[in-house]
Amino acid sequence: MGFNLLRAITLSGVPAMKFPFRSKALPMLFMGATLLTFQGPAYAHGGGKAEHGGVLQMVGETSFELVVKTDGVELYVEDEGEETPSAGLTAKLTIINGTTATEATLDSTDTNMFVGKGLKIVRGSKVAVLVTNKATMAQTGANFSIK
């Protein structure tokens, strides 16, 4: 399908980084879709590599890796390349498909991963991620567009 590159693009849509993908990694992505990510500099402060077969978005020092699976969604959070325990955070996804917006709160785990079991994300959807630190209420967000 020619999706051998996962291209993360900036807010304005220009490629900022490329992720080489081996063909066996492709099934991990929903229908081999190209995920376009927005906002924030890439490779700016470490932690700039997708490690779970998803697409990475850097927002300052924070990285979000969104993994779209056939049976749900995973979100991994790192700060300056260090895993951020999801137990100290909340994560909310807004999935916009056409004029329909679906919101979902992801479940934390004992690692830096959030899970959203059963969440369906189809091609053409926009996914907005908002993570809030429970202690400081600091919020960091990112936007993904799935093509």
């Binding site: 807004t94 916009i96 004029t99 917006a101 919101e103 907005a128 991620v129 967000g141 990112a142 936007n143």
Partner: peptide
């Protein structure tokens, strides 16, 4: 949001700053 639907948004005081809080990631 990306479809121009309102998101619950507020300001909170954090030291000398007024910070934005939203219920989901805004466009």
């Amino acid at each position: 949001d990306a479809e121009w639907k309102p998101i619950v948004t507020s300001l909170r005081v954090a030291g000398p700053l007024l910070l934005v809080e939203t219920e989901s990631q805004p466009t």
